[in-house]
Design a protein around this nucleic acid. Structure first.
Length: 490
RNA sequence: GGUCUCUUGGCCGAGUGGCUAGGCAGUGGUCUGCAAAACCAUCCACGGCGGUUCGAAUCCGCCAGAGACCUCCA
């Protein structure tokens, strides 16, 4: 395959030609959700970004193993909760088994991802199912002298690591800066240095989720799971690791330190980070309480929302911005995306009705080249979509008879749109509500047929009355040349 | 406080040292019995002040404003 894909590598802060370790295979790891609540708009960003990457690499002919984890253990809550596990906290509040909570929100997450047409990863490992692997890696770090045990917990020794390797290379941080900038946290007294991080944490008595180990009854530290699971499924060295920009430090920095400390070399060749979703210019986040869940987006049930937005509207909205740019939520922006998406899909339908000519005023090859150039430039979907909209103008001109296209070019154009819109961008036609109710469809068709007969008889009063009454009921009537169309207005 | 990023037209959002981004909205038009929808055309721009340059919105500096990370976070 021709390899022209450039990826922005956070490690070097520049776009680099993507060259996989194995010419035909790609290993991709992405940090997945912590399943203690519904997924919000922010979760959709990495899911869609790396779904796009997964789809594009597959489209290019690579065999991709895409691993996206489920975090169901280990993350500490804020200090008010004294280190209680997030999952355990939720479980206590709702009097459910921790794993019941995990299952509930994992299922909800999967439903949201399906709605967004996000393809399932090849492997979706859970942290709780990989305690052994994490303990083994901790052993390795202890043996290599980059970790120490303290009061039943095990910590990563950042100072020792820094003597040999560069801690902070990913996020551009220096040890000296870290020394003065760490606040007091639970268990600080057990650590040699404030910036050391937990590999294994001894569980407090009230802590429900715990596993026995040689150090203590406890649970793995915040960052172990990704290092251990990526290694297990993708090897000690693999191609791409992705995640949200907010995970760059400390999470990904710690992952690098853990993997390097355990194996003597780095694991990841390309680090990719998607930017944040903001609302009124501020990050959308759980702790800020300003998030909109995906199911709320789809149903419209949130005070911030002026209406419901379909999953494809949300997906298209995100693809219209570059994944490394912050993206601000607003009703106006979503409405614009909704209309734009509709225009694109309408043109796609038009494309199938175009007549072939002997000659062609259209060069499909040129448009194809532009589209792939955009994708190859660090997945520049806004540019790609701009080119697709230029193509929409062309398609409409063809349909109106203002341009000509031969069979060869038409076939190329159709293939291009099919592949890019469905396979790569992962968009899909959304079923109109009217097809879901056959009875309603028949009744309205009857009414509109009657209306058309009235129109033929120039009985405008009757025709308008039917249209107006339907409009009052929330049904929009659209006359066409050979009949009518209708849809339910939201 | 430390590190870093950003500032584009009514809104969203690309890009670039000189050549139309694109979408939505607005305006005008085609179509229609009228409308809606669709389609066509079109207005509006690069935070402020300096500098480099033949030429900068694009490079550099300063100022102003916004944000991210430094703590679980997508």
């Amino acid at each position: 395959m021709e390899n022209k894909l450039f990826i922005y590598n956070t490690l070097n802060r520049k776009k680099e030609l993507f060259e996989p370790i194995n010419a035909s295979h790609v290993g991709l790891y992405v940090c997945g959700p912590t399943v203690y609540g519904d997924a919000h708009l922010g979760h959709a960003r990495p899911a869609i970004t790396f779904d796009l990457l997964f789809r594009y690499l597959t489209h290019l002919g690579y065999k991709v193993r895409y691993v996206r984890n489920i975090t169901d253990v280990g993350h500490l809550v804020n200090d008010a909760d004294e280190g209680e596990d997030k999952i355990a906290k939720k479980a206590r509040l709702e009097e459910l088994e921790p794993m019941e909570v995990v299952q509930f929100y994992t299922d909800r997450y999967h439903k949201d991802m399906d709605d967004l047409n996000v393809r399932k990863p090849s492997i979706e490992p859970r942290a709780s199912g990989h305690i052994m692997e994490q303990m083994a890696m901790i052993d390795q770090l202890l043996a290599n002298g980059f970790a120490y045990e303290s009061n039943g917990s095990v910590y990563f020794d950042v100072e020792a690591y820094s003597k040999k390797y560069d801690y902070g290379k990913l996020s551009g941080r220096k040890i000296e800066d870290l020394i003065s900038n760490t606040r007091e946290l639970d268990g600080q007294g057990e650590k040699k240095n404030s910036f050391d991080f937990a590999l294994w944490k001894k569980a407090a008595p009230e802590h429900i989720m715990r596993w026995p180990s040689k150090w203590s009854d406890g649970f793995p530290g915040w960052h172990m799971e990704c290092s251990a699971m990526s290694q297990k499924y993708l090897g000690e060295e693999f191609d791409i690791h992705g995640g949200g920009l907010d995970l760059q430090f400390p999470h990904h920095e710690c992952e690098i330190a853990q993997s390097t400390g355990a194996h003597g070399h780095e694991a990841v060749h390309y680090w990719m980070h998607n930017n944040m979703i903001t609302i009124n210019g501020q990050k959308m986040g759980k702790s800020l309480g300003n998030f909109i869940t995906l199911s709320q987006m789809f149903s419209g049930e949130n005070d911030v929302l002026e209406q419901a937005y379909s999953p494809m509207t949300v997906r298209f909205f995100m693809l219209q911005a570059h994944y490394r740019s912050p993206l601000d939520f607003s009703n106006d922006a979503l409405k614009a995306a909704e209309k734009g998406f509709k225009r694109l899909m309408t043109a796609l339908a038009t494309l199938n009705k175009i007549n072939v000519s002997e000659t062609s005023t259209i060069d499909a090859e040129e448009l194809t080249g532009k589209c792939y150039d955009a994708l190859n430039d660090d997945l520049n979907t806004p540019i790609l979509i701009a080119h697709l909209f230029d193509g929409v103008k062309t398609i409409n001109a063809l349909a109106a008879g203002n341009a000509k296209i031969d069979a060869n070019n038409l076939e190329k154009l159709k293939t291009l749109y099919q592949k890019l819109i469905f396979d790569v961008l992962g968009l899909k036609a959304e079923e109109e509500a009217n097809t879901s109710n056959e009875m309603l469809d028949k009744v309205i068709s009857l009414l509109l047929t009657t209306r058309n007969e009235a129109k033929k008889n120039k009985d405008w009063a009757t025709a308008d009355r039917i249209r107006d009454e339907l409009t009052n009921l929330g049904i929009v009537v659209k006359d066409t040349k050979d009949g009518f169309e209708w849809e339910i207005n939201k």
